[in-house]
């Protein structure tokens, strides 16, 4: 993330230790993950060591420290999700995007993950794409949802561009 954007986030929240989570959360909201450089800058601003920032971020499943796509797909893997067919849903998405769980597409658009209970056992299978929820999924429904994202991305020419943050 560019320096001025990051500084803006830090200035907005403040530099007390208790602001670390909101700062990291906002960076992830904006660019899907925390780069090494982001963590170093945040550490400097908050008078922490980079290892402490990394240590904190890596505790939380939703604060990735490795590159993620613009859209992070998180399919629930709770026992209820599994009973209701989450693996078929995961497989369908995986086939559609040619992407295994834990990976990011080459164009930097999608990452696919399996996550613990996301609080929708009454409507499993369920998934999150960034902070949108999709429930009562079937492989077909999931495929349609992903297609919409693909369409939207191609319309807005959204793709990962390494020179842009």
């Amino acid at each position: 993330m560019e320096e001025f954007a990051l500084t803006k986030i830090v200035n907005h929240h403040g530099t007390e230790r208790e602001k670390l989570m909101p700062i990291l959360q906002e960076i992830v909201d904006k660019q899907s993950y925390l780069s090494d450089d982001d963590m170093v800058k945040v550490a400097n601003a908050l008078q922490l060591s980079a290892a402490e920032v990394y240590g904190t971020a890596s505790f939380y499943s939703f604060l990735p420290t490795q590159k993620r796509g613009i859209y992070v797909i998180r399919v629930c893997k709770s026992i209820i999700a599994r009973m209701k067919g989450s693996q078929e849903v995961l497989q369908a998405i995986s086939d559609q995007l040619n992407l295994k769980p834990g990976e990011t597409t080459a164009d930097g658009l999608f990452s696919l993950e399996e996550v613990n209970d996301i609080g929708w056992s009454d409507h499993e299978p369920a998934m999150l794409i960034n902070d949108k929820v999709y429930t009562d999924l079937t492989p077909e429904k999931a495929t349609r949802i992903i297609s919409k994202y693909l369409e939207q991305a191609s319309q807005s020419k959204l793709s990962f561009n390494p020179t842009q943050n």
């Binding site: 290892a51 920032v53 240590g55 890596s58 505790f59």
Partner: peptide
């Protein structure tokens, strides 16, 4: 951290992946 104010080593990850780690 406490004696040396460096925190070159920190605790990273959680659960079975938890480990003592330098930055990244």
């Amino acid at each position: 951290s406490q004696l040396q104010h460096i925190s070159a080593l920190a605790v990273a990850n959680k659960g079975s992946e938890q480990k003592i780690s330098a930055f990244m």
